[in-house]
Amino acid sequence: MRAAFVRRLGGTENIEVGHLPVPEIGPTDALVRMEASTVNHVDLFVRSGAYRTATPFPFVIGRDLVGTVEQAGPGVVGFVPGDRVWTNSLGHAGRQGAFAEYAVVAEDRLYPLPTGVAPSAAAPVLHAAATAYLGLVREAELQLGETVYVAGGGGAVGGAAIQLAKAMGARVLTSASAADAGWCRSLGADVTLDYREPGLAGRIAEAAPDGIDVWWDTSGHHDFETTAPLLRLGARAILMAGMDAAPVLPVGDLYTRDAKLLGFAISNASVTDLARAARVINGLLAAGRLVSRIGATFRLADAAQAHEAMATGGVRGRVLVLP
């Protein structure tokens, strides 16, 4: 089969596209023919070695996969050949990735693709939406009627967080570039602010005079000195970006508000967590309430260029990868 893989960690120059044997499945695995994938920031971290995890070489890159079951092991009970499926946890912890004609997926990491949802529409939202679920539901325990602030609403996780928070009945404020304002509003944001304009903190305070219940800076800047005074009593701040960030932590402003800092990485999520997220994702996909925008589309043969496009940040929208 054709695949995009690395023989050592490092830059995009290490990505090769060539032929590897079709992988063999175990008794509780499925062999899935890839129809769509995407590039996430974590894919760059794994490929470069910035995020240390098991990468048996040659290591196929890519995390998200939408495709069709070609073969199912004798212990697989929920899927049969021909089923349209997806997963969002390949390419990590020794699991080979999605950038190949075929991928092996354990049944407990495989989910049905809702009828009528195109692979190219599903693949770009899977990782981001699961991240949004973990942050808002598992970590922050978002409640109906609470106010959420999402910094970076124009990004993949930010956009998914807006949509999921609205589906949960929250009021959503977001900041983004002026070019992304319309997109954020289309996702359901109640208030969209231009993060480049001066006085952002004051405008957040005006839009949420009672304070923010859940603060999520998807950009990874984490300016807690500005953030803390805007938080409501009992607020939760989510940490899932900014690997190199080392912000000042205003402890007094945080603990006197009973605030919590909640850090997580989706790569650490259990299969139970991911399955719960998948049920919510499938419900929103089926209802047409979970969307993404495609900024660039690449073929598997151009995997290195796809990684470069994500790394340079010049693409507004998701980087889609097709066979």
Rank of each mutant, 00 (worst) to 15 (best):
P119L: 10
V125W: 00
T147P: 11
A132S: 15
L164E: 07
I212Y: 02
G313M: 12
F99T: 01
R2I: 15
R299G: 14
L187H: 05
R196M: 11
T174R: 06
A245Y: 08
A176D: 05
F298R: 01
T38L: 06
V291L: 10
K166I: 15
W215N: 01
G283M: 08
L31H: 06
A306K: 01
M168A: 15
T55Y: 02
V157K: 02
Y195W: 10
R7N: 15
A287L: 13
A246R: 15
R299W: 01
L274P: 00
Y111A: 09
T312K: 12
R318A: 15
A3M: 07
G153E: 00
Q96N: 11
G155D: 00
G67H: 02
A100P: 02
L320G: 03
G283Y: 11
G94T: 02
G26A: 13
R232G: 04
D29Q: 14
L20F: 05
G288L: 08
E24P: 02
P21K: 12
M168C: 13
A165L: 09
V172F: 03
A269W: 03
V77L: 13
P247Q: 14
G135K: 02
P56M: 14
F298T: 05
A304Y: 03
G188A: 10
G116K: 09
G314R: 15
A176W: 00
R299A: 13
M34R: 11
V157N: 04
A3L: 07
M1L: 11
F59D: 05
A306L: 05
T147W: 07
V46E: 00
G91T: 11
G75P: 08
E139S: 12
E206S: 14
G159V: 06
A178Y: 05
E308N: 08
I61N: 06
D213Q: 13
V46W: 01
A72N: 03
Y102N: 04
V137G: 07
R236T: 03
A309V: 03
L65N: 04
G220Q: 12
V148L: 10
A306R: 00
I238E: 01
L31S: 07
F298V: 08
T192F: 02
R257W: 08
F99E: 06
L44C: 08
V6M: 12
L164C: 09
G49R: 06
L261G: 11
E141P: 01
P81A: 09
F79R: 02
A121I: 12
G67N: 04
Q163C: 07
G158C: 05
D43A: 07
F264A: 03
T256C: 09
V321L: 14
G159S: 12
E141D: 14
T55D: 06
S120Y: 00
L142C: 04
G154C: 04
T174W: 05
R7E: 15
G182S: 13
A129V: 02
V214W: 01
A301R: 12
Y149M: 12
D190C: 06
A179Y: 11
G242W: 10
A296T: 09
V191W: 08
P124L: 10
I294A: 03
